[in-house]
């Protein structure tokens, strides 16, 4: 074999190594978010939740929605929701009754993009909402005007939240379904606990209060408002922006992913090295080929 070919082969491995490590370095720095200020992300989250609050409601722990939004909400409801829930929100075989459902429930399903469904009859999954915050609140205003009941939208203020309290509550109440890293997992029979990586503080608080889908309900006597805020703070600060000081987080799915890496990159890479160092002897050809 000409020597330059051998040279290329020989340089291939170090080149691959360098490439791999640069890649991982870039990814890990990106994932660590060491260049992004963590605090700014949190503060935008807070501003969303308080954005709609009205002057008189500052003291209480709930978001009140101006009645003036009801007409706009009515129009939006007719456009987006009525095909399943009917014009009066009483529901049909396609969608449940919404009368008396409460602001938190409506806001959670709409703001997380689960509602409106992209087509009737499919499973509601989280997706970016195509409605603005104002439009969502308008729908909430309209639906809550149809009948009283249900929990209001909690007003979440993370300023004085205690993330340490939040961590311990999260580990006790949330990790058993959502995993301790918040990545979500499969429940029985094709239902899933959702990933918490894109939830806003308000959505977290709403979910705790209303228990959407298969999720249990955590009322104010189980988790008080402060505790809800602690959990929301822990999730938005440390689940969504984990301290991945050690490098790429592998999606936080645990040792199975780590095992694959150890086998593929660790052992696989070292086997390639051995392959380079050692001989690949071909079997001596028999001379009886004529």
């Amino acid at each position: 074999m000409p020597y330059h070919k051998k040279l290329i082969r020989m340089l291939l491995l170090p080149a691959l190594l360098v490439l791999l490590s640069t890649g991982f370095a870039v990814i890990s720095i990106y994932r660590n978010g060491s260049f992004a200020a963590r605090t700014s992300l949190v503060s935008t989250g807070t501003s969303v939740s308080t954005g709609a609050s009205q002057a008189g409601a500052e003291k209480s722990n709930t978001v009140s929605i101006p009645k003036s939004l009801i007409p706009e909400g009515h129009i939006l409801f007719i456009e987006n929701c009525s095909s399943c829930h009917t014009n009066t929100g009483e529901g049909s075989y396609r969608g449940p009754n919404l009368v008396g459902l409460g602001a938190a429930t409506v806001d959670f399903w709409v703001s997380t993009g689960r509602m409106p469904l992209s087509q009737p009859g499919i499973e509601a999954v989280q997706k970016p909402s195509r409605l603005t915050r104002q439009q969502t609140l308008a729908i909430v205003a309209y639906v809550t005007s149809l009948g009283k009941g249900g929990p209001p939208i909690p007003k979440v203020n993370l300023k004085h939240a205690n993330v340490s309290e939040g961590q311990t509550l999260f580990a006790l109440n949330c990790a058993s379904c959502h995993t301790i890293t918040g990545s979500g997992d499969a429940l029985s029979n094709r239902s899933f606990s959702s990933s918490l990586h894109i939830a806003s503080p308000t959505q977290i608080a709403e979910a705790l209060r209303i228990g959407p889908g298969n999720m249990p309900r955590f009322g104010p006597r189980t988790l008080n408002h402060k505790e809800v805020e602690d959990i929301a703070a822990y999730v938005t600060r440390f689940i969504q922006h984990p301290n991945n000081a050690g490098g790429v987080g592998l999606g936080g799915v645990g040792p199975v992913a780590e095992g694959f890496i150890a086998l593929l990159i660790g052992l696989g890479g070292l086997m390639l090295v051995s392959f380079w160092i050692g001989d690949r002897q071909e079997k001596e050809e028999s001379r009886d080929g004529h």
């Binding site: 006790l172 990790a175 058993s176 379904c177 429940l187 239902s191 889908g213 249990p216 309900r217």
Partner: peptide
């Protein structure tokens, strides 16, 4: 600890080996 409660299907799921 069987901490995984599915409210709609009224099931408890064990997170370790998925007994329901």
């Amino acid at each position: 600890p069987v901490g995984l409660y599915e409210e709609q299907s009224q099931q408890l799921l064990c997170p370790c080996h998925q007994s329901i």
